[in-house]
């Protein structure tokens, strides 16, 4: 049995002004995987491609061992997709949208669907056009969860949700994966939520994977280094070291503890090196800022 829920290998998609990839992404089974990255990094493009919205120029995408093109229908039966971009208005009412979607999935869990409707305060008779943005996202989530998918892919699912609704959404996601067999891939800009709920993260920048691994390991791997330079020494970016700020002889840098950056600093005149733990958000901002430079 394949140990990975999603395997993306050497995925390339070329646009006139942007190239996604070559991208490698590995989402282990049973994981909640947070896909993060700045706007325009290629997250939605990569996710859309899993579901066949656009053809990849190179590379492979496998979900539960199924090829995203050759086994398209089987893949879509076992994986679900949630996004605020999904529109259900054509079905008029919440109940009718549910009826439509239910028709595709023999394994639809009726009781769970009703439970989710209550939890999300969705009314079967409510007109979809009158739902708030957040309620539409909840409907999208209900339609995905009630079919009990093995892989759930969410693109910015918490956009437009209030704090309570966010908790609800993540609560349901956690419930959905509690048996350890179901996998969630979630793309979000809510980094505090990702840090709290995702056990794995992958960071995309300019269409390429920058970091991937267990959330705690990645957050633990980087530190904010504060140090002083002596005799006018200047420091520049190098492997494992990203200079963030300089105030005369006082320096701030992002330091990768898996590299030799700390010992390199010490041997090159940095003194009073103090290391501070970063949040995922701090880490993200530091890496994104490095790109902006």
């Amino acid at each position: 049995m394949n140990h990975h829920a999603i395997e993306i290998r050497n995925l390339v998609k070329n646009y006139p002004a942007f190239t996604l990839g070559p991208l490698d992404l590995t989402v282990p089974r049973g994981a909640i995987y947070g896909l993060i990255g700045p706007n325009g990094a290629g997250k939605t493009t990569a996710i859309d491609m899993i579901f066949g919205m656009g053809r990849n120029d190179a590379g492979t995408i496998r979900v539960l061992g199924l090829d995203h093109r050759a086994d398209e229908v089987a893949l879509k039966r076992r994986a679900a997709y949630v996004s605020p971009d999904l529109n259900f208005q054509i079905w008029g009412k919440v109940g009718k949208a549910i009826r439509f979607v239910r028709g595709f999935y023999p394994g639809w869990d009726e009781a769970y669907g009703v439970e989710l409707m209550r939890a999300f305060q969705l009314d079967a008779g409510a007109k979809i056009v009158t739902l708030s943005f957040g309620a539409k996202t909840k409907l999208s989530l209900l339609l995905a969860l009630a079919r009990r998918p093995e892989v759930l892919i969410l693109d910015e699912p918490t956009t437009g949700l209030d704090a309570v609704s966010k908790q609800q959404v993540f609560g349901e996601l956690l419930k959905a994966v509690e048996d350890g067999e179901r996998t969630v891939l979630i793309s979000s800009h809510g980094l505090s939520d990702i840090e709290r709920f995702a056990d794995h993260i992958g960071m995309i920048k300019n269409g390429k994977l920058l970091l991937e691994g267990r959330t705690d390991e990645i957050v633990d791997r980087f530190r904010l280094a504060e140090f002083f330079s002596t005799n006018g020494t200047t420091f520049e970016n190098r492997a494992g070291l990203i200079i963030l700020k300089r105030n005369e002889n006082r320096w701030h840098a992002l330091l990768d503890q898996n590299s030799d950056a700390q010992s390199w600093l010490q041997t090159h005149g940095a003194t009073e090196i103090s290391l501070t733990r970063l949040t995922l958000e701090d880490l993200f901002v530091a890496l994104a800022r490095e790109e902006a430079k």
Binding site: G95, V114, D123, A126
Partner: peptide, 15 residues
């Protein structure tokens, strides 16, 4: 039509 009636009864039949 925006008012909800608290109904969680779903339609039966094919989809």
């Amino acid at each position: 039509g925006a008012k909800t009636r608290g109904s969680d009864k779903l339609e039966t039949g094919f989809g």
